[in-house]
Nucleic acid binder design. Structure first.
Lengths: 189, 189
DNA sequence: TTTTTTTCTTAACCTAGTTCAAGTCTGATC
DNA sequence: GATCAGACTTGAACTAGGTTAAGAAAAAAA
């Protein structure tokens, strides 16, 4: 059960039995109820988070007090605030379960131990971050070059099942529009 | 001269003499004239690009035929299309010198050799990509949460010298607005 | 079941940013 | 030094998307 995370990792690197066991032993499995918080804005982030099942969202609260959704993380994704994790400054993000979820927490110090001892994980995270960078670049292009309606369509393609259980206001926020305008777009279809 | 790149790298990892020499030997130094192309959209990207001096921009041409600037890369930055480099699919981006520049090209196969032989570079690129990811996340937030005027101000803070030699239309594109609207913003100051 | 709270929609009006068209300024080219 | 092309500005008309306020629907609480 806890070892299911390995299938995602061995897609990118090959691990020995020792490496697998050491890695698994560092992780703390946590079951989350819908709505439960994993990390809170204002506090220093201690964990890098892997989603085994369910769905998490990361958002920050802007100067007007509105929540801006940055990311949805579903099964197989890593999430959390890399900036706070690296610099140990208080995070501006909150991460929260949108549905009952199972996650694995990798504490900062454990992650450092892991990288120190088994450099194959440097490679794994290098590849993971490299892929994530491509994804982020694409989202940035989308944000500038496409209309809200186009962004909504490509969101539906990318996360076909999310719309069933994620409140529309969060989807609107992720798309960078108001819930009212998302309503308008949906009516047009 | 060619070794100046090392000062950026040793900020994040410590290298032996062998590692330094091997790395430098893989790089191909290239001098670029203003306006010259490094990579072109439609072709497969062969190089990861390090900027030693000068300034490069990466952009793509959208369905309406407008150039959308994704990134400016100044001294010390890596740039290029990671997606095309990884998958060997034709790139949608063009990378071009905005001023006379000196760059170091790291060919894909050489990079793979390097990572294979000296895993310390896995660590270096892991850290580099991790930092870049944080930067991209911040830009995404800015794009959604701030007005064009705020984005322009923070651009000026981040790249104080760029405005002197980069055509305003490219800055407008980077900010996700039209040149006309950038003019209006500038007049208001 | 009823009440309360939250989510979603609708509509009227508003604004940041676009489009189009014209005009100025600059630097390159002949 | 005249001409030409690209870069920048200006203004008027327009549109994508926001704001405000109200009501409908759904979910949670009682």
């Amino acid at each position: 059960m806890n070892r299911s995370i390995l299938s995602h990792i061995t897609r990118h690197v090959t691990l020995t039995k020792d490496e697998e066991d050491f890695f698994i032993a560092l992780l703390r499995p946590v079951k989350l109820k819908q709505g439960e918080f994993v990390e809170k804005a204002g506090e220093v982030t201690n964990n890098f988070i892997h989603v085994n099942s369910g769905c998490l969202m990361t958002y920050f609260t802007d100067k007007e007090g509105d929540d801006q959704v940055i990311q949805f993380a579903t099964s197989g994704w890593w999430t959390g605030d890399l900036h706070s994790l690296t610099t140990q400054q208080p995070s501006i993000y909150t991460t929260r379960a949108l549905a009952d979820s199972e996650v694995m927490l990798l504490p900062k110090v454990r992650m450092e131990e892991l990288l120190e001892r088994y450099p194959i994980f440097e490679r794994y995270f290098r590849i993971t971050f490299q892929n994530s960078l491509v994804t982020h670049q694409n989202r940035l292009i989308e944000a500038f070059a496409n209309t809200a309606e186009e962004r909504y369509s490509s969101f539906q393609k990318k996360y076909p099942h999310l719309e069933q259980f994620v409140p529309l206001k969060y989807i609107a926020s992720y798309l960078g529009i108001t819930p009212e305008f998302l309503s308008k777009i949906r009516r047009r279809k």
